[in-house]
C-alpha cells in the first residue's frame, strides 16, 4: 500500500537543520521523562519491600501476622515443589477460565439481545437491573449446596460475577451511538443486521472491552471466594487450609502468585484491547 500522503507539511529548507536539532532534543527529553517515571515506580516498590523487611526482621510485627520476605520466598520453594501444588493450581485455572468465558459470553449475548430487540428489553430489562444491585457473593453458599464441592459451583459463582458488568457494558456500548450515524445507515436502507455489524458492534467495542477487563478480575474473585466457601481443591482452598495451619508464609506466597497471575492476564487483555480498538489512539 503506497497510498498514503503526508499529513504534515515538511519544514522549509531554510529551517530544516534547526528543526532537526529541535526534534532530537524533544526525543531525548521524552526518553528522559520515561526513564525517570520508571525509576520512580521501581524505587517505590523497593521502598515498600524494604519497609516489609525491616518491620518483620526487626521484630516490629509478629511473624505470625506478617511473615518475613525470606520466609515467604522459602515457602514459595516449598509449596511449589509439593505434590499437591500443581493439581490445585490446575483446578483453579480451569474454574477461572470457564467462569470468565461463560460469564462474558452470556453477558454479551443478553446485552445484544436486550439492546437490539425492544420486546426483550421490555420483558427482561427491569429484572436484570434489579438483579444487578445485590452483591452476587451472597449466592456462593447456595451454589455450593446446589452444585457441590467440585468445579461446577465455583464456575457458577464466577459466571454470575462476570455476567453483569459484561451485560451492562454491552448494552451501554450498543446504545451510545451518534444519531446521525443511525440516520446514515437508515438512509442507505441498511438492514438491522448490517447496522449491527457495520456500526453498532464496532462502535460498542471500546465499552465492551472495558467490560471484559472488569469481568476478568471478577472471574478470579468469584472462583477464590467459591473455594473459600466450600471446595476440595484449588488455590483458594489451599489458602484457606494453609491459613488454618498458620502457615502464613505459604498463604502470602499464594496470594502473591494469584495477584501476579491476575495482573499478567489483565495486561494481555489490555494489549489485545489496544489491538482491537486501534482507532482510539489515532
Amino acid at each position: 500500500m503506497t497510498d498514503t500522503a503526508p499529513i504534515h507539511a515538511p519544514p522549509s529548507d531554510r529551517q530544516g537543520d534547526a528543526i532537526a536539532r529541535f526534534m532530537e532534543s524533544e526525543r531525548r527529553r521524552t526518553r528522559r521523562e520515561l526513564w525517570t517515571n520508571r525509576l520512580l515506580a521501581l524505587g517505590f516498590g523497593l521502598f515498600v519491600l524494604a519497609l516489609w523487611a525491616i518491620a518483620t526482621h526487626g521484630g516490629f510485627v509478629h511473624k505470625l501476622i506478617i511473615p518475613t520476605p525470606l520466609a515467604t520466598l522459602e515457602a514459595a520453594g516449598r509449596v511449589s515443589a509439593a505434590d499437591y501444588f500443581w493439581p490445585n493450581v490446575w483446578v483453579t485455572l480451569q474454574e477461572i477460565f470457564w467462569g470468565f468465558v461463560i460469564g462474558m459470553a452470556a453477558g454479551a449475548f443478553f446485552g445484544i439481545l436486550v439492546a437490539m430487540f425492544a420486546p426483550v428489553r421490555a420483558t427482561l430489562y427491569p429484572y436484570l437491573v434489579a438483579l444487578q444491585a445485590p452483591p452476587k457473593i451472597v449466592l456462593a453458599p447456595i451454589f455450593v449446596t446446589w452444585f457441590g464441592f467440585d468445579m461446577e459451583s465455583k464456575i457458577a459463582i464466577s459466571v454470575v460475577m462476570c455476567f453483569f458488568p459484561m451485560f451492562l457494558n454491552t448494552l451501554t456500548g450498543l446504545s451510545a451511538v451518534d444519531p446521525n450515524a443511525i440516520k446514515l445507515m437508515r438512509s442507505l436502507t441498511a438492514s438491522r443486521w448490517q447496522t449491527f455489524r457495520h456500526l453498532l458492534l464496532p462502535n460498542a467495542a471500546p465499552i465492551m472491552m472495558a467490560g471484559v477487563k472488569l469481568c476478568w478480575t471478577l472471574a478470579v474473585l468469584g472462583v477464590i471466594v467459591g473455594e473459600f466457601v466450600g471446595a476440595s481443591a484449588g488455590i483458594g482452598y489451599l489458602i484457606y487450609a494453609m491459613n488454618f495451619q498458620l502457615d502464613i508464609p505459604a498463604v502470602f506466597f499464594l496470594i502473591i502468585l494469584l495477584s501476579v497471575f491476575t495482573l499478567i492476564v489483565y495486561q494481555v487483555i489490555e494489549w489485545l484491547e489496544g489491538r482491537v480498538i486501534f482507532w482510539n489512539s489515532l
Binding site: D3, D178, N180, A181, K183, L184, M185, S187, L188, T189, A190, Q194, H198, L199, P202, N203, A205, I277, F278, W279, N280, L282
Partner: peptide
C-alpha cells in the same frame, strides 16, 4: 436518495477508502 449531515459521520475503524465503500457494501 443520498443523505449528508452536519457531522461527517465517518466510521473511525474504517480507512477513508473503506468509508467511501460503505454504501456499496450495504447495497
Amino acid at each position: 436518495v443520498g443523505m449528508m449531515f452536519q457531522t461527517p459521520v465517518l466510521f473511525p475503524w474504517r480507512t477513508i477508502r473503506e468509508n467511501v465503500r460503505l454504501p456499496g457494501e450495504i447495497l
